[in-house]
Structure formats: C-alpha cells, structure tokens
Design a protein around this nucleic acid. Structure first.
Lengths: 212, 212
DNA sequence: TGTACATCAGTGAACGCGCGTTCACTGATGTAC
DNA sequence: TGTACATCAGTGAACGCGCGTTCACTGATGTAC
C-alpha cells in the first residue's frame, strides 16, 4: 500500500518523521470523524503505520489530542494576529478584526475549536498546550491595554470587564455559529452577517457608533 | 441487591416506571462521568435493571441523550423564567436576570449544558428536544420584543442584532465559565463576579449606565 | 575502512475490556368471554 | 367469578466490534574503537 513517499522513493523501515505524520493524520481524522471518532489506531492507519507505532511518540490519545489542541491555539493566535495586523492597536477596527479572526478560525476548524475546550480529553499538564492557550488569551488583554492605555488591564476592574466582554462576545458568537444556531438568520452570506453582528456588539462595547 | 423500592415494598418483576427511572439514572451518570462516560449499560446498572432493558424504552443511546437534552432545555427555560419573573418585561433588570438564569443553569449543570449543544450525540429529529430548544431560544426574542416594543424583532435587522447579542453574551460567558476560564479572575465570589460582568455587558448593549 | 555493539523505531500477534445489539425466554398484566 | 389468551416488560446468555495496551521481535541507524 503506502510503501512509497510522495516523491516516489521507497519508504524505509524507519519513517523519518512519524510524529509529524501522525499529527497530520490526527487532524484529518478529527476533521472527518470528530473528537470522539478519533482513535490512536485510526491515526496509525491513516499514517500507513502499524497500530502500535504511535506509542513511541505520544502518551496515549490524550497526549496526541493535547498536541493537536496546542497547534489549534497557536493557529488561533496567528489567525487573530494576521487579521488585525496593520490596524491601529486599540482601535475599534483592530478589535473587531481580532474577534473576526477568532470567529472565523472556529468556523473553519469546528472540531479543532471544540477540542481546544474539551478539558476532559486533554492532558492537564501539556506545557506546549498551556503556553499556546495562554498566548492566545493574552491577545484580548493586549487589545484592551492598547484601547485604554492601561499597562495591566486585568488589574483594574472596569478594564478587566472589557477584556472579558471582548472574549465572551467572540467566543459566544463563535460557539453558537459553529453549532449552526444562526443558520436560519445568516442566510446566504454568513460571513457578512457574522461580521456585521460582531461590529455591532463590539461597537457598542468599545464606544464607536454601532449603527454606522 | 436492589430488589426493594425505597418504601420497603418488594419490587415486582415489572418496574412500573422504568423509563423515568432510566432518565434519572442517566442524568446522574452524566453528572458523574460526563457525556462520553455515559453508556446504556451504565444507566441500566444504576437503575438496577438488566442491560438489555433500556432497549424497550429508548432508541439507542442517542434517543436517551436526546430526551435528557430536551429536559435540559425545558429546565433552562424554567430557570430563566423563574429568575426574571416579576421584573418589568424588557427592562434591563429583566434582561440581566434572564441572562443570569442562563449562566447559572450552565454552571449548575455543566455536563447537561454541554450535552444540549452536542449535536453529534443527539437524535436530529426528536420532537420534544426540538420543541424545548425552540421554546428556550424564543425567550431572548421575547425579551427584545418587550425592550423595543417590536412585535417581531427578528424581522428588523437592528433588533435581530440585539437578540443575537443577548444570546451570544449569555452563551459566551456561560461556556467560558463552565470551562473554568475565569477561575483566576472570579476569585472567591464567582457568582458576584459573573453577575457584575453580565450587568456590565448587557448594560452597555441595552442602554443603561453600565458603571452604575 | 571495518567491525562490534547499543540504541532506536517500527512490526504483528495477543490480551482483556466494555460496549451495543440480538435472541429466545419468562414473569406479570390486562382483556374477552 | 373464572379461565384462556394476547401483550407487555423484563432477563440473561451470547455475538461481534474496535479499542488501548503489552510484548517479544526485527530492521535500521549511529557510534566507539
């Protein structure tokens, strides 16, 4: 079957980069079958390797899922950063773009997004996942810092509420959208509908004119 | 073992109300083991009945979970109604109380709350679950109708955005809280912290003075 | 340059597990007459 | 009031399934000398 690399070279006994290949396979399994349909054996199968091989690279299915979740948080942060790059830090445009990055990431990777919050399936002390999550959660804090001019928004109750508001609004809209709750309302332009909704909500919270 | 009812009467061969007993057992299993730890066999075990008995009452595990989810939506609507009852319809107090009912229900029933949105585990066409979900989702529409004076808020873009804002804010805060994301901020009074946060967010959206 | 050896990364068979489901069955209940 | 019978709601054994994990193994690689 899969005894050759894409370039046509025969595959050696040693895979060479099985760990990365398993992570790719796991992400595909996740996208196709969902979190509960993902198994170590299935990932090994997809990677073209015996079912016992993953044990050499991951601490069980929780270890593999945690690495996937870490990747998810890293990509989430990257998506937010890419969206808001170039916009004036702390501006409403910057904040709306950040939230849009959050929502769009969730919609593009629904199962990965859900996995990232499924603590029951993740290794509680995977260092990379914890760091990636912390880095992603730091983004709304930075946005509010720029918006308010405060060095540490979390130390000031009003600014902390703004941070939590930003995060909750993006997360709530993303989660409901991922669950298909807006299918009836969003019509044939869900992107436009969701972004208008975000701009409305954040415009009110962050002081712009929401009706503009 | 469990061959007697709580009142001491010996249990007959026929259970009498096994369906209800299985639902109770299922809810306990759900609370203790989570969605993925709940099995038909486990529910039967807890109800003190053979593992094949549930097949007489539910269409597989999806059928049982859907009934649980339906109960969840019914209780969610009841919790929201109980919280906001007596407050002036459409007032900020009414809206904040409704959202607080949503958030508190989620925190009190984390696994049930998660189950209600796990479409992959539910029967897509369970009539009771669909009706219960629709009834719950009608509450924010009614709240905005009272707030704006519009008969059908969903027909007017601005009011529709208010409905979605109310729902997203409550849902986002609830979901993040259930996932423990605010443990660091909420301190030793999570109720007070969450309610202050809700009042802040909704106060901005619904026109009161959020700093009051 | 060659050889011995340790280490690493895979294989494939085997294990036990709990699950959902099926099946023939049996005890209990209700109804017709 | 009694009897026959159909139906219902449970039982318990059995099935096949895919899973995670373990195990002895083997091919490939790297290193010491």
């Amino acid at each position: 079957m899969n005894d050759a690399e894409p370039n046509g070279e025969p595959r050696s006994y040693h895979h060479g980069d099985l760990r990365a290949a398993l992570l790719r396979a796991a992400e595909e399994e996740l996208a196709e079958r969902g979190i509960d349909g993902l198994t170590l054996r299935g990932c090994a199968r997809r990677a073209g390797v015996s079912h016992a091989a993953p044990a050499h690279h991951f601490a069980g299915v929780a270890g593999l899922l945690s690495e996937l979740a870490a990747t998810g948080f890293e990509r989430l942060a990257a998506a937010i950063g890419a969206r808001s790059a170039g916009l004036p830090p702390g501006s409403l445009d910057h904040i709306v773009a950040s939230a849009a990055g959050y929502v769009d990431f969730a919609r593009a990777n629904p199962h990965l997004f859900r996995l990232m919050f499924r603590h029951d399936r993740l290794d509680h002390d995977n260092a990379r996942a914890q760091a990636a999550a912390a880095a992603a959660f730091a983004l709304p804090v930075q946005a509010v810092a720029a918006h308010t001019g405060l060095a540490d928004p979390m130390a000031e109750p009003g600014a902390q509420r703004l941070v939590v508001a930003l995060w909750s609004i993006a997360h709530g809209l993303a989660d409901l959208a991922v669950n298909g709750q807006f299918d009836a309302q969003a019509g044939d332009d869900p992107d436009g509908w969701l972004h208008a909704q975000l701009r409305f909500m954040l415009g009110v919270q962050f002081g712009g004119d929401p009706w503009a």
